[in-house]
């Protein structure tokens, strides 16, 4: 009995330590990246100050941070809900490009004939359908034939990216001899704070569904032990497919926001690295809603700070990519646990 209580305490202690892991991962990432800057002859402190100023220094820089945070947050949620039920959704960029292509097509086909609100609605719906289907494909093939969804997802990303390049260059979707869509979206833009509120609402709704509702419960059970969930009578296949589709829909909403709200057109490779950044945000957030919020904010601030950095001369903006990479690296390994030598001791007891 005492042994058991000890064991439970030990597990709790590790869980507690693990909850601090992301903070350490971020700190170490900053330290190591700073060292790199130092080695290449720059001043890390200056660089970090410039980043901080670029991210939070003025009202407009704060707005810019929010602007970069929002898509990351939505994609992080989309990634997490799939991950929770055992489907590693790495294909978010592909889903975004696919829905961007759809949105562009809607704009070109109906832009002149439909009133703006209906056009916007049509874009949202069509984009969501295509994004959902693209996300569904690897999930379906995984469940049906055991295809590796990671390989499939990454390859789909490339395929759809190149397809968009081809379509933009060779069809009426794009400007002649350029891989940018020719259409300019003239939908009135929504102010950033309103967007932030909408994103926060989505986060809260997601958290509520996951924690307090029957579908959320099923999602969590399929995630924590799929065999048990199936054994208990839950329809695992259906749950995973529905979640995969919803995730694709969320990615496509993000895509619509970026295209309509920011770029006002579809240019080639506009979401480069966005999916991976969102995964990093989800990972350092330990897939908890609050954690993801901070994770997305951190990466959003870095991205927005990079603009500030490119103005100052002391270090190149690439340091931001460096930090992001190290955050991902140290976030995935349990740094704290390693240092406390807990790993070696948690060997199987027999």
């Amino acid at each position: 009995m005492n042994q058991m209580i000890e064991k439970v305490r030990h597990i709790r202690r590790i869980q507690y330590l693990n909850s601090f892991n992301p903070i350490f991962a971020v700190l170490i990432a900053f330290l190591v990246s700073g060292l790199m800057v130092l080695l290449s002859g720059g001043s890390p402190i200056e660089a970090y100050i410039a980043i901080a100023r670029g991210a939070f220094g003025s009202m407009s820089s704060i707005m810019s941070t929010i602007r970069f945070t929002l898509p990351l947050l939505l994609l992080a949620i989309a990634f997490t809900m799939c991950n929770k039920c055992g489907y590693f959704n790495i294909g978010q960029e592909g889903q975004m490009y696919a829905s961007a292509l759809t949105i562009t097509w809607v704009q070109i086909s109906f832009g002149n004939s439909l009133p703006v609100p209906i056009l916007f609605l049509l874009m949202l719906v069509c984009g969501a359908v295509v994004g959902g289907l693209v996300s569904l494909l690897p999930a379906y093939l995984k469940l049906k034939f055991g295809v590796n969804e990671i390989v499939m997802g990454i390859l789909l990303n490339y395929t759809i990216l190149r397809l968009s390049d081809f379509l933009l260059q060779n069809t009426a979707l794009g400007k002649p001899h350029a891989n940018t869509s020719m259409s300019v979206f003239y939908i009135p833009s929504i102010p950033t704070p309103v967007l932030a509120v909408i994103a926060c609402l989505i986060v809260i709704v997601y958290a509520f569904i996951e924690k307090k509702t029957i579908p959320g419960y099923r999602l969590r059970m399929v995630g924590s032990n799929p065999i048990f969930a199936q054994f208990s009578g839950l329809n695992k296949t259906k749950i995973v497919l529905v979640v995969a589709m919803l995730s694709g829909v969320l990615a496509s909403l993000t895509s619509t926001g970026e295209l309509v709200g920011i770029y006002k057109c579809f240019y080639y490779n506009y979401a480069d690295g966005l999916g991976f950044s969102a995964m990093t945000a989800a990972l350092i957030g330990k897939q908890s809603v609050v954690g993801m919020l901070f994770g997305a904010l951190l990466l959003g601030a870095l991205q927005s700070g990079a603009i500030g950095l490119s103005v100052s001369a002391s270090a190149s903006p690439e340091i931001v990519i460096l930090v992001r990479g190290f955050v991902m690296l140290f976030g995935t390994i349990s740094v704290l646990q390693y240092f406390m030598h807990e790993r070696r001791k948690t060997k199987e007891i027999s």
Partner: peptide
């Protein structure tokens, strides 16, 4: 592996 979901709570 089959009978329980160890990461979940007793209630779940």
């Amino acid at each position: 592996r089959v009978g329980l979901s160890i990461p979940s709570t007793l209630d779940e």
